[in-house]
Simulated assay, not measured.
Amino acid sequence: MTERKPYPSDLSDARWALIEPTLTAWRQARLDRRPTGQPASVELREIFNAILYINRTGIAWKYLPHDFPSYNTVYAYYAAWRDEGILAQLNYELTGLARVKEGRKAEPTACVIDTQSVKTSTNVPLTSQGTDAGKKIVGRKRGIATDTLGLILAVVVTAASLSDNAIGIRLLDEAKDTHPAISKTWVDTGFKNAVIEHGAKLDIDVEVVSRKAETRGFHVVKRRWVVERSLGWLMLYRRLTRDYETLPASSQAMIHIASINNLTKRITDESTPTWRGTY
């Protein structure tokens, strides 16, 4: 690894060891398809560190510090991993490891679904954003499905004008496709009969969990608090406080990256980078 002063977002050796096999296999497959078969000179760890830096700090690609590989190179890898599903694959692989570490089976059997509307930046095409009439937000809507630990199982990003029902159906499809053992899900009252009926077709029991009518103000809602906490975790990443991405697929990828960052720390019991205090 190139010698440079580390950033707080950098991967430790233990966290990189969880990610490296998947990225190395991906690179080898691409090299095998090349006519020359020449190995790439850039280090995959530095590429991923650069992506984590952007995800955590919220900067534009062109503002990537010069001690990382060039932003064009970093973005090219990011776009390839996004389009080929590598980031989603890493998310799901690490979710299984994190569940086993918590004493659960690798494959979840239940999930929780919720949505979050966020404002968009000026570069986001008008065709991919809309207005959430209920929350009075112009932008995009994120839908996530998590397991009962709050680990992300499925992600959907759409215009904010799309209904929770439509997003919920897509989340159920994605979650069931990736985790066939899922047979139960909890949702809030924004999800109506269409989601319940679609869940039944997939052999998933969809239960609507309502707030306690007799309790005023904030209170913890059974089951739903798990996914709401996960949405809160995402907001710790500045790239996700607003939707800056031109493509909804990039928005989903940025959520997967934040999730990968959380999962690797969870698996290795790291709350801060391991290079702290070593000088």
Rank of each mutant, 00 (worst) to 15 (best):
D132P: 05
L202R: 15
D188P: 02
I54R: 01
K5Q: 11
V118H: 06
R104P: 04
D147L: 05
W81R: 01
T109E: 14
T22F: 06
Y78N: 00
N193M: 09
N72D: 12
Y71S: 06
V74M: 13
R211T: 11
G37D: 13
G85D: 09
K136S: 11
E245K: 00
N49E: 05
M254H: 06
D188Q: 05
E214K: 12
P35T: 10
L44T: 04
S210W: 03
E228D: 05
L263N: 03
T189N: 11
H179L: 09
A17W: 04
A194C: 04
A159S: 15
H179Q: 09
V155N: 05
K105Q: 11
T272S: 11
N193S: 14
V100E: 14
A29G: 12
G96D: 08
R266Q: 08
F68C: 01
A25S: 12
F218S: 10
P35I: 10
A213K: 15
S41N: 08
G232M: 03
T122W: 11
K136N: 12
I47E: 02
R30Y: 07
R99C: 05
E197I: 03
R45T: 05
S163R: 08
H179K: 04
C111D: 09
R56P: 00
G232D: 07
A200I: 10
V195P: 01
E93M: 10
A106K: 09
L171H: 10
T178Q: 15
G168H: 09
S230K: 10
V226S: 00
G217P: 07
S259Q: 08
I54S: 00
I167F: 01
N193D: 13
H179S: 09
Y77H: 14
M1L: 11
R142P: 03
L126Q: 13
T24E: 15
T158R: 07
V156S: 04
T22S: 12
T146L: 01
L18N: 01
D203R: 14
D164W: 00
V187P: 06
A14L: 13
P6V: 04
S251H: 05
W225P: 01
V220S: 10
D83S: 10
A14K: 14
V195F: 02
G103W: 01
L172S: 01
Q89I: 00
T264Y: 06
D177L: 14
K212Q: 15
V220T: 13
S41R: 13
L171Y: 09
L18F: 03
I137F: 10
I137D: 05
T241I: 11
Y78T: 03
T268I: 04
T278G: 03
Y71F: 15
K119I: 07
P39I: 02
D269C: 06
I113K: 00
L247K: 14
L97C: 07
